[in-house]
Design a protein around this nucleic acid. Structure first.
Lengths: 341, 341
DNA sequence: CTGAAAGCGCTTACAG
DNA sequence: CTGAAAGCGCTTACAG
């Protein structure tokens, strides 16, 4: 770590003005008709001494930080972790860095983090938010800041969004179970009015309705301890002995649901057919392997970052809102195939 | 989003000098003997208008950003994701924010990210690094920046570190298998000279040596595609038919190793006893549940953040280096219990 | 107790 | 083509 070298030092050494150095470094040499010879000398020298402009000063002056704020529900959730990793990679390739935060689905925390992002002057926002922060996001969007919602939209908020068509995903998953001959299909979902949860439930309900079959929905309070969640799901299965197929609306529920079935000694798919939302190592390697509605994570990440960069590109064009609905795909595995003894 | 309000605005409105406002806001009112009455007025007013100082300007001036750079191998790896979430939470409670990055174990990428952290003027560094960046880290430490290495140390680098005693963890795991009566125990590890990998292997070797039993180590090239990793492990098992117990040195290897055993139709623990490093949902819920060497993640996160904050507190005390070796614990599950027909 | 002023390190009109 | 100067928004000696 040598002493930090400043633009002033390099200007002095090269015997040119600070402006010249700055202009060259910011690619405005041509524009300002600085001679190629001089520009080259500046480039050479700055590279040789490894000069790095102070980003703080630069940001203060230009109002740009090259930082994107990314808010997820829980960074330790494999779905969000994978999206985060892909976004980070793609953003980095475009010169942007990512600050992550987990909201844990707490609106107060999400609000605090939103404020923090503003204080840090992030250039753009990528958000998977809990309910109850609609007005904050609306004013953020109105202020002209590039915002992309993902995983879930917010009711009454007109912002860019990249989400998966959970309704169709669940509709197809339910139809698949029906085709297999199951008639008593339950849905285990969250006690949440989040848009993506409603959509998933909606797909399930529609498929059953079309066949005039009864629905059976159990919602779990996710603020409880994991242990409680498991026993709650256990109790639900015990209270509904005729139910022989179940859809878990999130991978979080899938994990705890499998544990519950385990404890009850119900074998899959013999006693209970299972489909979960989100693919994972667990689903793939479980015995039997679990059928899942897989989200197109790579495509989500790509679309999120492209949408955000577009908005960053023309801040004035913020009047037009892009909302993308990506199609998930059903990965059929053993857990949902009708058991033939 | 109203117009951004500045310290100048509030000074004018209160008819005091900018300095007064700044001093009060930074808790130096007493020190500068500003009257309580005035101080209160300032507090009241700034709170009422929701004034937030521009962090960029503040940082430029003070040289402090309240940002900590966290570098992990892969944020989508459950171990690192969990550590990251805990660190984020604990840091936030102390007023620090986290920037994460994944190195993917690539020294060039790690080096680039290190430079980026410096450009962003992070106040402190929390690093799980690949091999080959020792000199960069050494000069960082020498420059007086607070650094905490975790998960793995770097050879010849004298820096704060919080790591798990993998040697003991693996030693105990191997002993457990020996106690169960297994004599042909293999280790599947990574083609890597990273310190924590060497330690884990070392624990395994020592346990076998004490019993005069032969070791059987297979190392996997982790830069390959997942599919290749699986088939490589498969081939290893096929080439060593007498091997009836295996230790996987990371959860990444555990996942692929289970897949390999699956494909070979080897049942656990009947044909092959299994122990993996790192606990996970998969290990817990697998059939049979997998015995693991679990890292004390919560304790790691706490010690990391405390060590870093201590270093941030007295930058001069950077002469003393804290290196913590935490003890992992063996969670014995069915996968390693000698099969009794 | 308080105000005027320098300075953190940069970018960018503006005038030559 | 290039230089002097203002200004991004703050903090903090320094002088009163």
């Amino acid at each position: 770590m040598k002493k930090k070298i400043l633009i002033h030092d390099i200007a002095k050494h090269l015997d040119v003005s600070i402006a010249t150095v700055s202009l060259v470094l910011n690619g405005k040499a041509k524009e300002m008709r600085i001679s190629d010879t001089l520009a080259d000398r500046v480039q050479q020298y700055t590279a040789s001494v490894g000069y790095k402009p102070n980003q703080l000063a630069k940001s203060l002056r230009t109002g740009k930080t090259n930082v994107i704020g990314l808010m997820v529900e829980d960074i330790a959730n494999p779905f969000f972790a994978t999206v985060a990793r892909l976004i980070e990679k793609k953003a980095l390739a475009r010169g942007y860095h990512i600050i992550y935060c987990s909201t844990n689905n707490d609106p107060a925390k999400a609000q605090g983090l939103l404020t923090m992002f503003q204080e840090r002057h992030v250039d753009g926002y990528i958000l998977a938010l809990p309910e109850g922060v609609g007005s904050e996001v609306s004013s953020l969007v109105r202020s002209g800041k590039p915002v992309v919602l993902f995983d879930r939209m917010l009711p009454d908020v007109s912002a860019n969004a990249v989400v998966v068509d959970g309704a169709t995903g669940m509709y197809e998953a339910t139809q698949h179970l029906l085709t297999q001959g199951f008639k008593n299909i339950a849905l285990v979902s969250l006690q949440s009015e989040q848009q993506q949860m409603l959509a998933r439930r909606q797909g399930y309900l529609q498929a059953l309705q079309e066949q005039n079959l009864p629905a059976l929905v159990h919602t779990v309070d996710y603020t409880q301890e994991p242990e409680q969640v498991v026993s709650q799901i256990q109790a639900f299965f015990q209270a509904n002995p005729s139910c022989n197929a179940v859809l878990f609306a999130t991978n979080y529920l899938g994990v705890h649901g499998l544990e519950a079935l385990n404890r009850l000694g119900r074998s899959i798919p013999k006693h209970m057919a299972v489909v979960s939302f989100d693919d994972s190592n667990l689903s793939r390697l479980y015995s039997p392997p679990i059928t899942v509605v897989a989200q197109p994570i790579e495509a989500m990440a790509e679309n999120i970052i492209v949408t955000l960069l577009t908005a960053l590109g023309d801040p004035l064009k913020s009047t037009s809102v892009t909302q993308l609905l990506l199609t998930p795909h059903l990965l059929i595995r053993e857990s949902s195939i009708r058991f033939k003894p």
